[in-house]
Design a protein around this nucleic acid. Structure first.
Lengths: 157, 157
DNA sequence: GTTGTAATGTTACAACATTACATTATTTTC
DNA sequence: GAAAATAATGTAATGTTGTAACATTACAAC
């Protein structure tokens, strides 16, 4: 299944703001700045990367704790994914989409840190779940993170 | 597919020793101790857990650095898996098996830290790979980590 | 404007991991 | 078997990621 992906940063920011309004969440300047910063970088970033970039781009110091809190907010609002496997953070590719979010399957390039987000097909998802249910196991986090090298980095050598 | 799983600790240790001999790897006392310790605990452990357990079980202090080095060794020898998502380590369930290792699918219980290792079916694996190959992405780490609650912990409430 | 709640700041620290260099143990070579 | 080479382990310092506890500031509701 192919989705319409994020267009420009402004559009995504406006969509985010609108969604927050509708849900009664505060889309503060700093939260918006962090999201904007992450949209500009086209790759996953650590919390400390974000802290440094914030300082650079907005000429204002921000503490690590604040970054983590803003990331928590953005994750709960479903604007950002945490990559557990690399302790990094990336904007969700589907902020401007309106369909329900499926199990995200994240292809993480270990060379350039770009992340491609594809949704796992319904069939595949149900097979995986059946495979798991056989053990009586109850899934919590539904997110597949797969590490490798993206097509651009393969071509570089 | 169901495999014969590890039997008792002694048997696994002997199998490990034999495999090291065949490959010219040194299965030192401390490496063996660490593996034994991990076999005794029926759950995943952090490097610092292992350090503490080592002290308790062998009445000898060992540094974090050494633990990490021994874990590296055990991982390369394919005796141990690293759970990226929780920064913990667990003995591979297939040390005494002789078939080629398939993509491990690890069901990690977030309550008791027990890990069930099931091998992903060939069909499912090829579907996943096809899904990924469509993006030109080249997989590196082939390990699926799935978090949830195991059947025993569900029954406890 | 006062008050209550949410957001952010500050400080301290916990947990996980690596680097650099020293020392010890084992193997190899002669 | 002694010297040299290599592998394993020890020690100290530090880097990275993340959280806890509490203070302060900003904003919304009344």
């Amino acid at each position: 299944m192919k989705h319409i992906l994020n267009k420009n940063t402004q559009e995504v920011l406006q969509a985010a703001q609108k969604q927050c309004q509708q849900q009664g969440l505060r889309f503060t300047t700093k939260r918006s700045n962090v999201l904007q910063l992450m949209l500009n970088e086209n790759k996953s970033l650590s919390a400390y990367d974000i802290m440094a970039e914030y300082k650079t781009q907005y000429n204002q110091s921000i503490s690590a704790v604040s970054v983590y809190r803003m990331l928590d907010f953005l994750i709960h609002a479903q604007f950002v994914h945490k990559l557990i496997s690399s302790s990094q953070y990336i904007v969700c590719s589907h902020i401007t989409c309106h369909h329900a979010h499926e199990i995200p399957q994240l292809l993480i390039c270990d060379t350039c840190h770009q992340v491609e987000e594809i949704s796992i097909g319904k069939l595949l998802a149900s097979e995986l779940e059946a495979n798991i249910a056989a053990s009586g196991f109850k899934l919590q986090r539904q997110q597949l993170e797969l590490h490798g090298v993206c097509i651009s980095c393969q071509n570089l050598h």
